[in-house]
């Protein structure tokens, strides 16, 4: 049992002093009948143990695709990683043979999904779906797997775990189902957990419970957590850092407090202004004009320019060359970031 775990841990070139997760210049495209959709165009993100990174953006900005590329579960075809590196403790996952890549999943990097009802297999008991992880990856007996699965359900605070282990997904409530998903992701003690909109499908009160559970488990296990969301409210409470994505690129990256205080990219700023606030009751909500770009035809220059209040000729012609260093550990991808930062956020 332990032997197998040890064997898995020995990834060739694994360097415990290297960064937990380091995604560099990642490019992903979808080759569809309508043309090539460039979903990810050079994403850089990194993650340390015990840290929560929030990836923020509208639907279609590429945040889920980034997560799936890291997991190696892109639907391929039509999805292809065309460039870049995904390093886990110094090992480039993209260069691993499929058999080893497969073992990285769940053992080192795990993921939970938005809609737990459809993400769980409807015709197998959750005991089977949890125990399967131990049986396949660790070769444990049925009984052992069952015992460990019950422990996991206890861990995520599902009441009467012993009785519920034989139940099927549709017999659980939405919040409980998401707890089962979390238990499943944590089964093999991964070092990185990716949560793709884990609370979007849930009631507000249940959302908070799930976020707290995630935060607690992250702390206890010193995991790195990547939280993918479009909800700025969720982010403020739990994230350490934020990466804002637009049209397949990270447009701004910053510690969470800095970004709320002084956004350095017009898109981040607009996102912040579009949150409904109690103190602005009665006023019209500031929404971002226009639509996210069609990924089949991303505009030339800065992809945000058609919707940007700061846009000038240079934005239409040249994409911002690289991430500008706004401050230590802070970058923005905008020609006029100084202007944006200098501005007082509207309404305060």
């Amino acid at each position: 049992m332990t032997d197998i775990k040890a064997e898995i841990d020995v990834l060739p070139g694994l360097d415990s002093s290297a960064r937990l997760l380091d995604v560099e210049n990642l490019h992903v495209e979808f080759r569809t009948q309508a043309g090539v959709a460039r979903a990810i165009n050079g994403v850089d993100i990194h993650l340390d143990p015990g840290e929560t990174l929030a990836i923020l953006g509208e639907s279609g900005c590429g945040k889920s695709v980034t997560a799936q590329a890291i997991m190696g579960i892109l639907d391929s075809p039509p999805g292809f990683v065309t460039k870049g590196a995904i390093r886990y403790r110094g090992v480039d996952l993209l260069k691993l043979p499929e058999e080893q890549r497969r073992k990285v999943r769940a053992n080192h990097i795990a993921m939970i999904f938005q809609d737990a009802l459809s993400a769980l297999n409807p015709v197998f008991s959750i005991g089977f779906q949890l125990g399967e992880l131990f049986r396949v990856h660790r070769g444990t007996s049925r009984q052992d797997a069952r015992r460990r699965s019950i422990e996991l359900l206890d861990l995520v605070k599902i009441p009467a775990a012993r009785q519920r282990i034989n139940d099927y997904p549709h017999q659980f409530s939405g919040g409980m189902r998401q707890r089962v998903m979390i238990a499943m992701a944590l089964a093999l003690d991964p070092k990185v957990l990716i949560a793709d909109e884990p609370t979007t499908a849930l009631d507000v009160t249940v959302q908070a419970q799930i976020m707290n559970l995630l935060a607690e488990l992250r702390r206890e296990r010193n995991m790195g957590l990547i939280l993918i969301t479009h909800d700025m409210g969720v982010v403020a409470d739990v994230a350490d850092r934020i990466s804002v994505m637009y049209a397949g690129k990270v447009v701004e990256e910053a510690p969470v407090l800095d970004i709320y205080a002084r956004p350095a990219h017009p898109y981040t700023k607009a996102l912040l202004e579009s949150i409904p606030r109690l103190d602005m009751k009665g006023q019209q909500l500031n929404v971002i004009k226009g639509l996210p770009p069609n990924l089949l035809r991303i505009p030339a220059g800065c992809p945000f320019h058609p919707r940007c209040a700061y846009a000038r000729d240079v934005c239409r012609a040249d994409p911002p060359p690289q991430q500008y260093d706004v401050a230590p550990a802070r970058t923005a991808r905008c020609h006029f970031w100084t202007e944006v930062v200098g501005d007082e956020p509207a309404g305060s």
Partner: peptide, 21 residues
């Protein structure tokens, strides 16, 4: 799959963006 949908539906108004014709 969701990716493709989001690609093809990129012209559909989102929660944040303003619906334009």
């Amino acid at each position: 799959m969701s990716n493709i949908e989001s690609v093809t539906q990129a012209e559909v108004p989102t929660a944040i963006g303003v619906p334009v014709s």
